[in-house]
Design a protein around this nucleic acid. Sequence first.
DNA 1: TAAATATTTATCGTAAAACAATAAATTTTT
DNA 2: AAAAATTTATTGTTTTACGATAAATATTTA
Lengths: 67, 67
Amino acid sequence: MIIINVDVMLAKRKMSVTELTELVGLTMANVSQIKNGKVKAIKLSTLEKLCAALNCQPGDILEYRRQ
Amino acid sequence: MIIINVDVMLAKRKMSVTELTELVGLTMANVSQIKNGKVKAIKLSTLEKLCAALNCQPGDILEYRRQ
DNA sequence: TAAATATTTATCGTAAAACAATAAATTTTT
DNA sequence: AAAAATTTATTGTTTTACGATAAATATTTA
């Protein structure tokens, strides 16, 4: 399974969902769903915005775990 | 921008596109497009299959580069 | 270098899913 | 308890993956 670790990065950056939302320019509902792994796909443009806002790499946000 | 490094992983694993296609169970046309960065989004289920087939992490496949 | 094989590109159609807008529910903070 | 933040839910629109297929191109092999 693929795990989304946006929450981990938010904690590291001491950033709120509201703040992240402003930076990426999506609706808060949307950001919340991504953060909580409620999406089945992700646009690369969105991943790019997340990486830019959180100053990190896709690998910091996405994780693969067997089983 | 987000760069897709499936080609790098294929080289590391000495694996062909045909072989990868069989492992992930998508059409070859599709795998080829992903490999060559011709997609604008990716399903997490597909990313998962790629990671499993290439025995790697999302971070090995996806890379964020500024500008 | 000709043939075979592998890969890429293109087109069309369908299904999946992001995302916006909005509102309500829930949780957290003050 | 009130305010603020976050999550969840609903509906509609738009985007895009992905399949099927075929053609074009590139690569490998005999």
